[in-house]
């Protein structure tokens, strides 16, 4: 579909148009597809810097998927603009199954956070869900409240004194923070940082009061006793912290949130390719090594039923709908 494809060329440069036309032509000419796929190296674009939590997830599954596919998957990091640059690149790439995207919840939230995205977040082909990373509400280790209900009470009662850190607009911690503010219907001061590292440092040093972040970033600090954990944002208690209550137990079920990761392909990628990739993804997620590595991060691979195109499509659509009002109510936009 060269016509629909051209819509993705939001760029204003003639070069991009030429490139797009050439790509579209290639797609059309390679009609006889399927049989041998994949025949060469597949590029998995991660729209964040190398070494970050999303990159880590990508590299974990990419390696095992390569084993199943019999072809190497190389991870390419195209960081920037909250993941929208990398996603934009994939939207414009050839829809031949050799360029795929691994993105997290930002795929859904950027639809509202960015008011002029150069691509349609719903315009991708789907491969499947990879993992859903839980989040934990944590505070500096001398924070007065004893448990989650007391914590909520304290925040409500001292709204003019408490400070909540987040890792920047659109970051997981920012999303969770917005949910928390709307769940307890209280305004307090939020302090944005450039990334989780500095935010966590200030939390450890007691410069800010609390934060809600992925287990990837919080687990080691919690077990080390350098910060206090109040609640997990999952429906069930976490396997690594069986004593930690959930937000629903604490009376705030609307705060349930996880940082889910999915794999996508450019619009028009043949179903044979996405189907094959989906099988490879299920293979990788069933691998004990992957399970173990994810468990260390406080998360688990998505079940095989979720590692499918249909499940990811549903997830993305419901999440876009869920976050739209939250973000609009907060009135924060990233552009």
């Amino acid at each position: 579909m060269p016509g629909a494809y051209a819509e993705f060329l939001g760029g204003n440069m003639a070069m991009k148009r030429i490139l797009g036309a050439l790509c579209a032509a290639t797609v059309l000419s390679s009609a006889a597809f399927a049989e041998g796929y994949p025949e060469r190296t597949i590029t998995m674009v991660v729209p964040f810097a190398a070494g970050g939590p999303t990159d880590t997830v990508a590299r974990l599954v990419a390696e095992k998927m390569s084993t199943d596919l019999g072809q190497q998957i190389v991870v390419e990091n195209v960081g920037g603009a909250g993941g929208t640059l990398g996603a934009g690149n994939v939207a414009k790439a050839e829809a031949d199954g050799y360029t795929i995207l691994l993105h997290h919840i930002g795929m859904a939230t950027s639809a509202t956070l960015y008011r002029n995205l150069p691509y349609d977040p719903l315009g991708f082909e789907y491969v499947g869900l990879v993992t859903e990373v839980p989040m934990v509400m944590v505070a500096r280790k001398d924070f007065p409240a004893a448990d989650f209900p007391a914590f909520v009470e304290y925040v409500k009662g001292n709204a003019d004194k408490v400070t909540m850190a987040n890792a920047g607009i659109g970051a997981a911690s920012h999303l969770c923070g917005m949910l928390f503010q709307s769940a307890i219907d209280t305004q307090f001061v939020t302090v944005p940082y450039k990334g989780t590292g500095p935010a966590m440092t200030d939390l450890l040093g007691g410069q800010v009061d609390f934060m809600c972040d992925q287990t990837t970033n919080t687990t080691q600090q919690i077990t080390g006793g350098t910060i206090k954990a109040y609640a997990a944002t999952t429906p069930e208690r976490l396997a690594i912290f069986p004593d930690l209550p959930t937000v629903a137990e604490g009376g705030l079920p609307q705060m349930e949130v996880s940082i889910w990761h999915g794999i996508y392909a450019p619009h028009g990628t043949p179903a044979e390719a996405t189907g094959r990739l989906s099988t490879a993804l299920q293979f990788a997620l069933a691998d004990p090594g992957v399970t173990k590595a994810m468990a260390d991060l406080g998360t688990a691979p998505s079940p095989a039923a979720d590692a499918t195109p249909a499940a990811l499509k549903t997830k993305l659509e419901t999440e876009i709908a869920r976050w739209k009002p939250v973000i609009e109510a907060a009135g924060v936009y990233a552009d």
């Binding site: 810097a49 070494g51 990159d55 880590t56 590299r59 966590m200 440092t201 077990t223 173990k292």
Partner: peptide, 24 residues
């Protein structure tokens, strides 16, 4: 906690190796 981008990359490497860096 990473002091600079290089250290952030090292943390990523540790996590991939199954070691989550932290106070322990």
């Amino acid at each position: 906690i990473p002091a600079n981008p290089v250290m952030a990359l090292m943390i990523g490497a540790m996590i991939i190796q199954g070691i989550v860096p932290g106070p322990n």
